[in-house]
Simulated assay, not measured.
Amino acid sequence: MLVMNEQIKASEVLLTGLDGEDLGIVSREEALALAKQHKVDLICTSLMSSPPPCSLISRSAAKEQASAAKREERKKDQPLKAKEIRLTPQIEDHDYDTKLRQCEKLLASGNAVDLVVKVQGKEGPKAKELLEQLLKDLAGSGKKETGIQLSGKQAAVRVLPL
């Protein structure tokens, strides 16, 4: 919700000009006169402080800023997307490096990563070792959400972006 022009009730406002320059504390009337003179709107950016900070912005720019802020808010509210990376306990060094780079890229773009190692027979400890190594190598770009879970045919861990 934008508070603009005559809707601003404060007697004095902390004014910011069109190019972001600080114009100091001026009366509401003076600020409105400046806005009319430059054919722009006086927009209040926060009602929480006294005097309220206001700026001279063209209406389209103000609406664009508000909608961008709403978009950001909606983006933050969405749950994390989790991407699954599958491995086997007998992974070659080159393949390991590739999977590691893939994980770092996914974490950098804000996705959670589920690392899943397929286990057959008595490979449980080896799979756990591999996941611990991966977690150590990913420490710079992510942190584990849960411990390593070993269940029947797989060992898994979820890594969240930092």
Rank of each mutant, 00 (worst) to 15 (best):
S11M: 14
S11K: 14
S11F: 01
S11W: 08
E12Q: 14
E12G: 04
E12N: 10
E12W: 15
V13S: 08
V13L: 13
V13R: 01
V13G: 02
V13N: 01
L14H: 12
L14F: 14
L14D: 09
L15N: 02
L15W: 13
T16H: 07
G17P: 03
G17N: 13
L18F: 03
L18S: 03
L18K: 10
L18N: 01
L18R: 10
D19G: 10
D19S: 11
D19I: 02
D19V: 12
G20E: 09
G20H: 05
G20K: 02
E21A: 07
E21Y: 03
E21W: 01
D22L: 08
D22E: 11
D22K: 12
D22M: 14
L23E: 10
L23R: 07
G24I: 12
G24N: 09
G24D: 00
G24Q: 04
G24W: 09
I25R: 09
I25Y: 04
I25E: 03
I25W: 10
V26A: 11
S27Q: 03
S27D: 07
S27F: 01
S27G: 09
R28E: 11
R28Q: 07
R28T: 09
E29Y: 09
E30S: 12
E30Q: 13
E30F: 14
E30C: 06
A31Q: 04
A31F: 05
A31M: 08
A31L: 02
L32H: 03
L32F: 01
L32V: 00
L32P: 03
A33E: 12
A33V: 01
A33L: 09
A33M: 14
K36L: 07
K36C: 02
K36E: 06
K36I: 02
K36Q: 13
K36M: 06
Q37I: 03
H38A: 07
K39R: 09
K39G: 09
K39N: 10
V40A: 01
V40G: 00
V40D: 00
V40I: 04
D41C: 03
D41P: 02
L42G: 00
I43A: 00
I43D: 04
I43E: 01
C44A: 05
T45V: 14
T45H: 03
T45E: 08
T45M: 05
T45I: 08
S46V: 05
L47G: 06
L47F: 09
M48Y: 11
S49I: 15
S49A: 15
S49M: 11
S49G: 07
S50N: 14
S50C: 13
S50W: 15
S50A: 15
S50H: 11
P51G: 05
P51V: 06
P52T: 08
P52G: 08
P52C: 02
P53I: 05
P53L: 03
C54P: 06
S55V: 15
S55K: 12
S55E: 15
L56W: 11
L56I: 03
I57Q: 12
I57R: 15
I57E: 13
I57V: 09
I57G: 02
I57F: 12
I57W: 15
S58T: 12
S58L: 14
S58I: 08
S58Q: 15
